[in-house]
Amino acid sequence: MTKLRIQKRLFVLLAVGPAFAGYMLFTLYPNLMSAYYSLLDWNGISSARFIGLSNFKRMFGDEYMWAALRHSLIYAVTVPLLILVISLFLAYLLTNRGYRESAFYKVLFFFPNVLPMVVIALIWAFIYDGNFGLLNSVLKGLTFDYDGYYWLGDEKIAFWALIPPQVWGGVGFYLIIFMNAMIAIPKSLYESAILDGATHFQRLTVITLPLMNGIIRVCLLFMVLGIFKTIDIVLILTNGGPAGSTDVIGLYMFNLSFGKGVAGGGMHTYGYASAIGMFLFVILVGAKLLIDKLIPNKQVEF
């Protein structure tokens, strides 16, 4: 083996080795252990007992798990679509309308992403507060009397009330991504379309969106995956209540492993939570394949 080849292999080892070791230690190993734990009857502390696929059999009869999964699926459809539409619309306006205040608007919309999710949750907890909340005050000014009404205390409203905080916290980040993507599109394409008499909507649908296909696909994938992993804002605002109406699959798994246990019973079942995690992994793979089907990865050159 020549000295040059040895140097190349050493360079690759030093460059890739730490990242690969981190992936093995913090990603692959925990996932493999979760798959193993899903076959155990274990509370995370005492001795484990191998029970095979019993956790999975129990999971399919767990009405609380299915309710939490249904809530997560609804959020995974509504929240990413709202973020996508709003951020694309705002990015197109700020990029193509030539507002002098565009730089200020970028900072303004991105501001929520600077805040920790805990702070965002506390801000919206104040907005929804029944006695001193901003929302009730605004509605009262519009002659709608909701004084003393707790938005997060109503089973029919609390679930939908969690959507605005998630959308508000995510629009700014994707707005910046979409603006940078739109700026990279050659202006000559728009100038040719204008000469052909294309309207703003036609330019958006025929030029902008097709050329941003790959970026939209990746962003949508991250949004959907992020929604399934979101538990902090739900934990702070409602903790899954009232009566489980806002419980999501991530929070349900957390409570099974470390929190209030099964339906508030105080029994921790780490093995059962791992089985739900494996089932969620299958769902996320299916969501990824569905996004690939709906938004194919097309290579565009310009």
Rank of each mutant, 00 (worst) to 15 (best):
K3Q: 15
L4Q: 15
I6L: 15
L10V: 05
V12W: 15
L13F: 14
A15H: 09
P18H: 11
P18C: 14
P18Q: 12
G22P: 03
Y23W: 14
M33Y: 12
S38A: 14
L39I: 14
N43A: 13
S46T: 13
S47V: 12
F50Y: 13
I51H: 00
I51D: 00
L53N: 10
N55M: 02
N55L: 08
N55W: 05
K57T: 11
K57P: 04
R58S: 12
G61Y: 05
D62T: 02
A68W: 03
L69R: 03
R70G: 15
S72G: 11
Y75R: 01
T78V: 15
P80A: 04
L82P: 01
I83Q: 07
I86N: 03
L88E: 03
F89L: 15
L90V: 15
Y92Q: 01
L94Q: 06
L94G: 00
R97N: 10
S102N: 08
V107C: 08
N113I: 04
V114Y: 03
P116I: 10
V118N: 05
V118M: 10
A121V: 10
A121R: 01
G130V: 04
N131V: 05
F132Y: 15
L134R: 05
L135P: 05
G141M: 14
F144Y: 12
F144Q: 00
D145Y: 10
Y149H: 08
L152D: 04
G153L: 07
G153S: 06
F159G: 03
F159D: 05
P165Y: 06
Q166N: 09
Q166S: 11
W168H: 02
W168F: 11
W168I: 09
G172K: 02
G172L: 06
F173S: 07
L175R: 02
I176C: 06
I177T: 09
M179F: 08
N180E: 08
S188T: 14
S188D: 11
Y190M: 01
S192D: 11
L195K: 10
D196P: 03
A198V: 02
L209C: 04
L211F: 11
N213L: 13
I215Q: 06
I216K: 02
I216G: 00
V218M: 10
L221F: 14
F222C: 05
G226V: 03
V234L: 12
V234G: 08
V248Q: 07
F254W: 12
L256D: 00
F258S: 08
K260R: 14
V262M: 10
H268V: 03
G271W: 01
Y272R: 02
S274C: 13
F279K: 02
I283D: 02
I283W: 04
V285M: 11
I291F: 06
I291Q: 03
P296W: 13
N297R: 13
Q299F: 12
